[in-house]
Simulated assay, not measured.
Amino acid sequence: MTEIESLTALAQHLSGGKSLANVILQGLELQAQGEALLRSDLTGTVFLGCHLDPRTLQTVIERGAMVFPPFSGLPYSPYRGALYTPEELYAGFDPAHPESYADTPDARVYAHWNSRGGAHPPSILETLAQRLHDHAITDALEEVLVHQGQPRRVVAIMGGHSMLRGQPDYRAVAALARALARLGFFLVSGGGPGAMEATHVGVWFAGRSDAELDAALEVLARAPGYKHPEWLARAFEVRATWPLLDAHRELSDSLGIPTWLYGHEPPNPFATRIAKYFANSVREEGLLTIAKGGVVYSPGSAGTVQEVFQDACQNHYNTVGVISPMIFLGRDFWTTTRPVYPLLAHLAQGHEYARHLLLTDSQEEIIQALVRFNQELDARRVAG
């Protein structure tokens, strides 16, 4: 079915003489479009959270349309038609007054989520609104994963939220992400601080020099962790000092996938697209599922280890149709500090994904492995 998610798209659709039969209209203010709507065939038309005047609402239902009514009193739209951007989530934030974050849409949604029971809201209407919102985010996400008619080469970088700006690991992740973006990979992360932020910082600077990246990292290091009161302000200082140039926007496009379950961690301001979920389970599984081009694991703790074995399960049983690389950055960390790799290598024995495991300290080895795998994946897609 055709989906229409803006008034501009609706006007273009109708001006071309097309019918609205079996068309989905999502999250639109349609009080002024009543006459135009009623001139069209509405058989099988679906209105998701659209605002209609009372006469039009009654008529479209009588003529066979399905109407999902809008919710009232929510600081978010359950029927949104696009992913978030940092500009939307951080609207109203003033870097000179870090406390102004509390007045941003992101903070207001988190406050609402907490006030309604957090992960266990007692209201069935609240849970319904959250599920519809997350469904809408997934729908918008699927559209982003296709670029110019072709699937993107999606690579995820995982790692700990407590990785501090200024640490060598943070610099290494940023450098790796920048190198991969320059090769045409679409980088995704869990959309939060630490290693996740480093991923998007690297992509943000894909069109800039080493000296510019190093200078930006020095600015960020003045507020090392997300609990520092100036953590977000320093990020916005970097964004303002080294803004995305029009020539670099496609090169520096990246996706963060955070959750309001961890709403105390602000979403990544360097990800150009943000798929923020209420349900962390949907977010975690979805993040690993879309990373068909491979997953790189930088140092992390329990959350990263959980992602390792979720990814391993997908590969072990080939549940997503592609067995993709699992690459571990940091030999000592993944064999001694968090000795996950030996267990995973043992688990993978006799399975296809054993040949896609890599333990390394080398950025170049990672790049070579991902390029080789994705070239093979592209060839299989072309062949059939």
Rank of each mutant, 00 (worst) to 15 (best):
68 F>R: 13
382 V>A: 14
291 A>Y: 06
247 A>Q: 13
101 Y>H: 13
363 Q>G: 12
273 R>D: 11
346 H>V: 08
276 K>F: 07
34 G>S: 15
124 I>N: 00
263 G>S: 08
237 E>D: 14
344 L>S: 02
266 P>N: 09
57 L>E: 13
251 L>S: 04
301 S>R: 13
219 V>A: 03
351 H>F: 09
77 S>I: 09
147 H>R: 15
352 E>M: 11
333 F>G: 00
122 P>N: 02
209 S>Q: 00
318 N>Y: 06
215 A>G: 09
100 S>E: 04
71 F>E: 09
161 H>M: 03
345 A>I: 00
262 Y>A: 04
129 A>T: 00
137 I>T: 14
119 A>R: 08
139 D>Y: 06
141 L>H: 01
339 P>Q: 08
146 V>P: 12
161 H>Q: 10
348 A>N: 02
242 W>G: 08
311 D>G: 10
370 L>T: 11
34 G>R: 00
66 M>T: 15
147 H>A: 15
271 A>T: 11
233 A>R: 12
255 L>W: 04
339 P>E: 07
280 N>T: 08
160 G>L: 01
315 N>P: 07
109 V>Q: 06
163 M>L: 02
300 G>W: 05
148 Q>V: 02
332 D>N: 07
268 N>E: 13
193 P>K: 01
11 A>C: 06
66 M>G: 11
14 L>N: 01
185 F>W: 06
175 A>V: 05
83 L>F: 02
86 P>T: 10
2 T>C: 07
267 P>Y: 12
90 Y>E: 01
159 G>Q: 02
82 A>C: 14
116 R>S: 01
245 L>A: 15
81 G>Y: 09
209 S>H: 01
107 A>C: 15
246 D>W: 12
144 V>N: 01
12 Q>D: 14
283 R>P: 08
297 Y>T: 02
128 L>G: 06
238 V>Q: 04
18 K>P: 03
143 E>A: 11
253 D>C: 15
220 L>Q: 09
297 Y>G: 02
302 A>E: 09
146 V>N: 14
340 V>W: 03
355 R>W: 01
102 A>M: 10
115 S>F: 01
105 P>S: 04
210 D>E: 15
29 E>F: 06
61 I>E: 08
197 E>M: 10
360 T>G: 10
22 N>E: 07
256 G>F: 08
332 D>I: 05
56 T>F: 02
41 D>V: 00
114 N>E: 12
27 G>V: 00
68 F>P: 06
116 R>W: 03
20 L>M: 08
359 L>P: 05
109 V>G: 07
197 E>K: 01
138 T>A: 13
17 G>N: 06
98 P>L: 05
263 G>Q: 10
199 T>N: 13
290 I>L: 15
208 R>G: 06
379 A>R: 15
257 I>L: 15
307 E>Y: 04
336 T>C: 13
311 D>Q: 09
278 F>P: 04
105 P>M: 07
11 A>P: 03
149 G>I: 08
369 A>N: 10
23 V>L: 10
233 A>G: 14
309 F>Y: 14
